[in-house]
């Protein structure tokens, strides 16, 4: 049996021979994930805060990019009559890439502008404009937790203030994709994305 015979015989048993090529959109998503997941682990939160102050655009976020990873779970249909509920992202420490309108448009399944009318167990926002997703007049969002730096602006929802909030599969998108409506660049990002 020559080398070529041996190789051909082995090749006929290649388990990946039937592997279909990855669709182009999955390839580009993988690329984007790799380049945007350039996580810089910072040892302690006290090191985080000065950096935050210096770079308002680069939000240091809890599982920021993790939240932004496309979820494989189906998008829940958001109710229109009852208030829409959105969860706060999980905490952690990571560095986000500068937000991109295209990424926002691709990942957010719900985005709106609204003003906080009340804060209880949940933060209630009166919707002034829905950029993407089902129409809603009221949205209830979990107050942002210890990873409060995830939200652009003060980092917490405050009564009377206006916010731009994007969500994917029921969870608020952070990493510079949600925050106070007058946070630098945020409104422009929304207008470009939607």
């Amino acid at each position: 049996m020559t080398d070529d015979d041996l190789r051909n015989r082995l090749r006929r048993t290649d388990p990946a021979a039937s592997l279909a090529p990855l669709p182009p959109d999955r390839v580009s998503r993988l690329l984007e994930e790799s380049m945007s997941a350039d996580v810089v682990a910072l040892p302690a939160r006290r090191r985080l805060l000065p950096v935050l102050a210096a770079a308002a655009v680069l939000l240091l976020a809890g599982a920021g990019w993790l939240v932004f990873r496309p979820s494989s779970s189906p998008t829940p249909t958001l109710p229109t009559a009852a208030p829409v509920h959105l969860a706060a992202p999980a905490g952690g420490q990571a560095k986000c890439r500068e937000p991109q309108a295209a990424t926002l448009a691709e990942n957010a399944d719900f985005a709106f502008a609204g003003t906080v009318t009340g804060i209880g167990d949940l933060v209630t926002l009166q919707v002034s404009k829905v950029y993407k997703g089902a129409a809603a007049s009221t949205v209830q969002v979990e107050q942002q937790g210890d990873s409060s730096e995830t939200l652009m602006g003060s980092g917490k929802f405050e009564t009377g203030k206006s916010y731009l909030v994007a969500a994917s599969a029921g969870t608020v998108l952070i990493c510079g994709y949600s925050g106070e409506a007058d946070a630098p660049g945020l409104l422009a990002l929304y207008e470009q994305a939607f």
């Binding site: 048993t13 021979a17 039937s18 592997l19």
Partner: peptide
């Protein structure tokens, strides 16, 4: 990553 087994299984190999 789901792959089908090769068409002709070569048990000997």
């Amino acid at each position: 990553f789901v792959v089908r087994p090769p068409e002709a299984a070569d048990d000997e190999l």
